[in-house]
């Protein structure tokens, strides 16, 4: 009766075991790395838009307030996108013939809305509310990054649950004066300022982090 296993069989078994184990470990590492990568979270990735709108120019250079366009941010869960009409408050006067603004003029003329592509979309099953965050002094920059330095808008932070929870567990480190909520550059604001203001804000708003991690706060 012939041998069932060739002399190399043992080697093959070892190679297969190593490759398989490597594959499992490597695959897991790759998958978890991918999930954390900016490719998956879209953090820092530009998105094509019908009009190459520059936040750098409008916010950074011209100093427009965020709320001029995102008017719902203090009143609703939804910050909202500006209606074409809002764009045209200025652009009916300036850059009236600019080629890049043609879709905006078209939109008004034809009464067809501009279809923007969302940059800061939240995962499913999350109900985020702008109104309460802005109302408690979480500055825009905390989640949206330095919008004033984005010629093309990209996602400033990875909207992972951990990102939300970090702040919900320690809001004192992020809260800023409510009247400066749209301020982008906080370079003059020291850690000491933050510590003293954060403490005051926590007391003023009766914030209790132990209640701020309830599932039902965001998931329903």
């Amino acid at each position: 009766m012939a041998q069932i296993f060739s002399p190399a069989a043992d080697t093959w078994l070892r190679v297969a075991t190593v490759v398989l184990a490597g594959g499992v470990v490597g695959g897991t590492l790759f998958a978890s790395g991918l999930a954390r990568s900016t490719y998956e979270t879209r953090q820092g990735w530009h998105v094509d838009q019908p009009v190459p709108f520059s936040h750098q120019h409008h916010v950074g250079d011209l100093g427009l307030d965020c709320r001029f366009c995102h008017a719902g941010v203090e009143k609703s869960w939804n910050a909202g996108f500006p209606a074409t009409h809002t764009c045209m408050t200025c652009h009916s006067q300036i850059w009236t013939g600019a080629q890049i603004l043609a879709p905006v003029r078209d939109s008004l003329a034809k009464d067809k809305p501009i279809t923007w592509t969302r940059v800061s979309g939240l995962p499913d099953y999350v109900y985020f509310n702008h109104q309460i965050h802005v109302g408690r002094g979480v500055p825009c920059v905390e989640c949206h990054g330095r919008i004033d330095k984005m010629p093309m808008t990209y996602r400033g932070e990875a909207f992972k649950m951990r990102f939300c929870l970090d702040c919900h567990r320690h809001p004192e480190g992020r809260l800023k004066p409510k009247d400066q909520v749209t301020r982008m550059d906080w370079s003059g604001w020291t850690a000491k300022d933050q510590a003293s203001f954060g403490k005051k804000a926590m007391q003023a708003y009766h914030l209790n982090p132990s209640r701020m991690t309830d599932c039902s706060l965001c998931h329903r």
Binding site: A71, G72, K75, S76, W77, N78, G80, F81, P82, A83, T84, H85, T86, S107, L108, D111, K112, P113, I114, T115, W116, T117, R118, G121
Partner: peptide, 18 residues
């Protein structure tokens, strides 16, 4: 769906999402 479609002219007193 990644699309965001605002109004052309927003109705008076309308707060998006409310």
């Amino acid at each position: 769906d990644p699309r965001a479609i605002p109004y052309v002219t927003a109705p008076e007193n309308l707060i998006p999402g409310k």
